[in-house]
Simulated scan of single mutants.
Amino acid sequence: MTKISITPVTSKRERKAFIELPFRLYAEDPYWVPPLKGEALGLITPEKNGWFSHAKAQLFLAYRDGRVVGRISAHIDTLALEMPAASGFGPGVGQWGLMDAEGEDVFFALLDRAESWLREQGMTRALGPISMSIWEEPGLLIEGFDQAPTVMMGHHSPVYRAWIEAAGYKPVKQLRTYELDITRMFPPIVQRIIRSGENNPRIVVRKVDKRRFDEEAAIILEILNDAWSDNWGFVPLTPPEIKDVGVKLKPIVFNDLIRIAELDGRPVAFMITLPDLNEAIRPLNGKLLPFGWAKLLLWLRKPRVTTMRVPLMGVRKELQSSRLASQLAFMMIEAIRQASVANYGASRGEIGWILEDNQGMNSIATTIGSRINKVYQIYEDSL
């Protein structure tokens, strides 16, 4: 068989080849959702992704007979290096991700090159796949191949798991998503908890105000970085990242789908829900031209979707061991559930990802009648 060559991505043409490879490899996968090529290119372009303000990455392409047959990223997050080792990251921990390959031999060649680059940078342990920030698309899909991913979630070939494990990598953490029928009322016990909260004058659950986008985003960021700080894999979100994510997500931010809970006038919890943009972009095959932009713009004016995704929810750490934490969560979930059905025609919700050992969030998800629909796995190995 012809030799595989691995080369670093250094040019605009090579970056384009990097984002176009999955379009060929997943062309026959009915559940893969083609990303908008401009968004995919922005992810790997330092000038367009605030994550690069505290991270660096090297992309690689695999060639055989002059044809691109694989890709991978190797990257180092300086904020992750500062985290305690118990958090999953810490000193000496690099990552790899954005991996796709035509065959096992291609994968092994790519992984070897990514690991070599990490060693050259002084790393001693690797986590993967993480594409590329922990806040973007972490983990390899290992369960739930029969459903298309929702917005900002990954989809992978089922053969990759065996390849990664054959390379000596061991599972370190699982991330779960839950689905539920949001047209149905929650169980009576949840309804009683919600009514109790609604009768408590100290509690206010309000919509965000998109006209004050930056101010509301700052409130949510402050709660998020506090609420998630003890979670495995936590790396604080930074203002440059929030700015770029805000530009990317602002078109699908709607006041009634994002709630902030206040206790005695102080913001203490939040919940972000997004209409599943993948339902709108899937038919575009990655292209906004010539007519895709018009179709997407029309959809964005008044989305009608089947699925709503809850990517982020958080309650301040000081309240997390109290009964109030779950009460606030149920109140926000119910308010958004009602808005999702009434205003957007949604019938299905997806919550996640949630760490396998996050007992509080897993309990909330099961209490409202959700079931696990997808599982993603992060692996580790020494370098």
Rank of each mutant, 00 (worst) to 15 (best):
G154F: 10
E165P: 10
S157E: 14
T177A: 15
F89S: 13
G144F: 01
H155I: 02
K173V: 13
V172Y: 03
P158S: 00
D181F: 12
T124Q: 13
V172H: 01
W163S: 09
S116F: 14
W135P: 08
F186N: 00
E137L: 12
P187Q: 06
F108G: 00
G139E: 02
Y178S: 04
L110Y: 04
L110M: 04
D112L: 05
A166L: 08
G92K: 13
V93S: 04
P149M: 07
D181L: 07
R176L: 15
A148E: 14
P149L: 05
G144N: 01
A109V: 02
S131P: 13
R113Q: 14
S116M: 11
D181V: 09
M99V: 13
Y160G: 06
F145T: 05
D100W: 00
G97I: 05
D105F: 00
G168D: 08
R113A: 13
L180R: 11
G97L: 06
K173L: 10
E104F: 09
G88C: 03
I164F: 00
L118W: 09
V172T: 15
D181R: 02
L127G: 05
L118M: 12
E102Q: 11
M123F: 00
M99E: 01
E120I: 07
E165K: 10
P188R: 14
P149A: 07
K170C: 05
I164K: 00
S157F: 10
I142T: 14
L127T: 09
M153C: 11
G144L: 05
G122F: 04
I182L: 09
L110A: 04
R119Q: 14
A148P: 09
V106W: 02
V151K: 01
R176Y: 15
S131W: 03
V93I: 13
M153S: 15
H156Y: 10
T124V: 14
I130S: 01
D105V: 06
P91N: 07
E115V: 15
M152W: 05
V106N: 01
A109P: 03
A148T: 08
L111Y: 08
I130K: 07
E165F: 00
V93W: 00
H156W: 11
Q95L: 04
W117T: 09
P91Y: 10
E120P: 03
E137W: 05
R184P: 01
D105C: 02
G154T: 14
L141Q: 03
V106H: 03
W135E: 15
P188T: 13
M99Y: 04
L180Y: 12
P149Y: 07
S116H: 14
I134H: 00
F108L: 08
M152D: 07
Q95P: 00
Q147K: 08
T150I: 10
D181M: 06
H155K: 03
T183G: 08
R161C: 08
R125G: 05
Y169L: 15
I142K: 09
H155F: 12
